[in-house]
Nucleic acid binder design. Structure first.
Lengths: 164, 164
DNA sequence: CCCAACTTTCACGTGAACGGTAAGGTTGCG
DNA sequence: CGCAACCTTACCGTTCACGTGAAAGTTGGG
């Protein structure tokens, strides 16, 4: 494979900041900023302290970008939605770090309630947006009605004029 | 009627900035700012140069707030969506200013295409948002599956332990 | 081992979207 | 007509979400 110096780190599938950012359609600056405000932490650091991101990190970055661009949430709101997941523990790691089923269950149930909360937030936004679409659609229909009425009226008057 | 000094101006149904802003859930500062960036112009000005807003202005303000809060559009994007409607003319006024059917038709058709554009923008946002909901819902379902599997597994091991 | 291309932290700069305050003018009930 | 409560423009301040260097260190192919 054409694996230049800008390739993935080792064969571990870890990406450096620019690669990870590009993968999610972001700039490295944004990614560092997101870390600064507590939205994510890189999966690892290289020997020389380079940030290294794995696939789930990129997933998360994509999700953040979606929440930002598509849902229009502020980074603070996004932090709320992604509640801890870093602060409390690195979910996945913590999950595999324990073999205690009760602990695993707690982690999973926690994740479930987070997802449910996220869905609720998103659904409410979809709802309000859909309401705006409907409103606009109603205006559109009314205006189209006016256009139709006017064109008919004009057609009639032309007929009169033509039939003179 | 209890009509204090803070009542509607005259009986013309015109509102002063604070009243109009409140009606739309905004601050007067925001409303002035929106005017500054070209999102709307008050229907009139009082003798003493007070901004006066009519019902359609309030409608517009509400729409702007929706685009801002619910759709997460920037004021620049909103300006694009509400394209001119001020710059080119004050739609309603212009419409009633002419009796030329052809001119009225042009205005109406213009409005139709604006509405269609707005709906398109909003629908695309709804779509992307819905995709995020679906994604999250899929994650939720998977996690719930894990929870179920784990609880069953635990129940089984308890049974074994109990049956010893 | 060298060097280009990446990376680090630190810090200041910027545009958007307002908030707040000052200094003055307007409205309208009493 | 007096006065409280609104309004005006003007301008500076602030928060968010980064952009943009600067100065230094790291990586990795040749």
């Amino acid at each position: 494979m054409t694996d230049t110096k800008t390739g993935s780190v080792d064969a571990a599938g870890l990406l450096r900041i620019q690669e990870a950012a590009a993968e999610a359609g972001l700039t490295s600056r944004s990614v560092r900023y997101y870390e600064e405000v507590g939205l994510l932490r890189p999966a690892a650091r290289s020997e020389g302290d380079y940030r290294l991101y794995d696939a789930t990190d990129v997933e998360r970055l994509r999700f953040i970008k979606g929440l930002r661009d598509d849902a229009g949430f502020s980074l603070a709101e996004i932090a709320q939605l992604l509640e801890d997941e870093d602060a409390r523990e690195r979910g996945h790691e913590a999950y595999h770090a324990t073999t205690d089923p009760a602990e695993r269950l707690r982690i999973l149930r926690d994740r479930v309630s987070r997802y449910e909360h996220q869905i609720e937030m998103l659904r409410s936004k979809v709802g309000r947006l859909q309401a705006m679409v409907d409103e606009t659609d109603a205006r559109l229909t009314r205006t189209k009605g006016k256009v139709r009425a006017l064109t008919e009226e004009m057609a009639a008057s032309i007929e009169v004029g033509t039939a003179r």
